[in-house]
């Protein structure tokens, strides 16, 4: 497993990075945690001519609260998000998602930004970003723009970033403390495997804690990209938290899903069925965390 020859750069700032991207963009790859890119290079599936290592840019690695948002630097490691008290307090689903990624070695090095830009439909962050309605700050020499979670993923292993752009920050709206809840449920063959299916749910209940005021549902591994279960979300919006409603939404999501047959992780039919099971489990968990004591 020896990669092809490549040129290596280790910029010290975002400015320096976007200059390099501007010059070598189409033939370059950003090296963040490297947990996907390095194996792909060693398998010679990816052979970038230029590798731009951003690991020395310390100011891309942070988690901080800013008004109604939690801001996460693109280079923040999964492990940081798994353990951060601020994250656990403000947006606990992030911590739950991080803890389900790979194994400890992967979480120590892998980054949230790298995972999102890699745009693997089996990546766990995508579903949670969709459920949370995250937005993504992207920089290039041309300037700066923001993408929302409906537009960050373009296709399998393809994000919507242009070759000269760098993801710098992820911005998460902080859900109201007392009546919201989130959950990420993942079905995997074994710990550390890619998800067979995954379901991320973030809900906010109305003041009476009876009905859904806001809901985001993201799914892992059941479509060419991480997928928003839009119709399932719509089916719950404004409706009461009942088992029948959750079941109906999970059924709708399983119909919206577009999984493919896979000889190792299961047929499309099975993945649909599991989408329903795990989404329902996530909905029940999220409702419980939002303060629903018993779901009828």
């Amino acid at each position: 497993m020896f990669p092809k020859e490549f040129q290596y750069a280790s910029p010290r700032s975002v400015q320096e990075t976007v200059q390099l991207l501007n010059r070598f963009g189409t033939e370059a790859k950003i090296l963040a945690g490297g947990q996907s890119l390095i194996p792909l290079m060693k398998l010679r599936i990816a052979s970038p001519k230029y590798l731009i290592d951003i690991n020395r840019i310390r100011d891309l690695e942070y988690v901080r609260e800013s008004g109604e948002f939690l801001l996460i630097g693109a280079l923040t490691r999964h492990h940081t998000l798994e353990r951060s008290e601020l994250v656990k307090d403000k947006v606990p689903i992030l911590s739950e998602t991080a803890s389900s990624i790979g194994d400890p070695q992967v979480r120590n090095l892998g980054t949230i930004g790298g995972s999102i830009v890699h745009s693997d439909p089996a990546g766990d962050w995508g579903a949670t970003m969709i459920a949370l309605r995250a937005s993504f700050n992207v920089k290039s020499l041309r300037g700066e723009r923001s993408l929302d979670s409906d537009h960050i993923f373009s296709d399998t292993l393809t994000s919507s970033l242009s070759p000269d752009e760098l993801l710098t920050e992820i911005s998460i709206p902080i859900p109201p403390r007392d009546r919201s809840g989130g959950a990420y449920e993942k079905f995997e063959r074994k710990v550390g495997d890619f998800a067979t299916v995954g379901a991320a749910v973030q809900i906010t209940l109305d003041k009476a804690k009876k009905a859904f005021e806001k809901i985001g549902i993201g799914l892992t591994s059941v479509a060419p990209t991480s997928m928003r279960a839009r119709r399932a979300e719509e089916s719950l919006l404004g409706r009461d938290v009942t088992l029948a409603n959750l079941d109906e939404a999970a059924t709708i999501a399983s119909e919206e899903a577009r999984p493919i047959d896979d000889v190792l992780r299961g047929s499309a039919e099975f993945k649909r069925a599991m989408t329903k099971v795990f989404l329902k489990r996530a909905l029940i968990k999220a409702a419980g965390r939002a303060g629903v004591i018993e779901i009828e």
């Binding site: 398998l43 194994d103 063959r189 074994k190 710990v191 550390g192 495997d193 890619f194 000889v263 190792l264």
Partner: peptide, 15 residues
């Protein structure tokens, strides 16, 4: 088809 450790499912202590 199972030509890497991410395809061939060797269990860990967790399982």
């Amino acid at each position: 088809v199972t030509s890497t450790l991410s395809d061939y499912a060797v269990p860990t202590a967790y399982e």
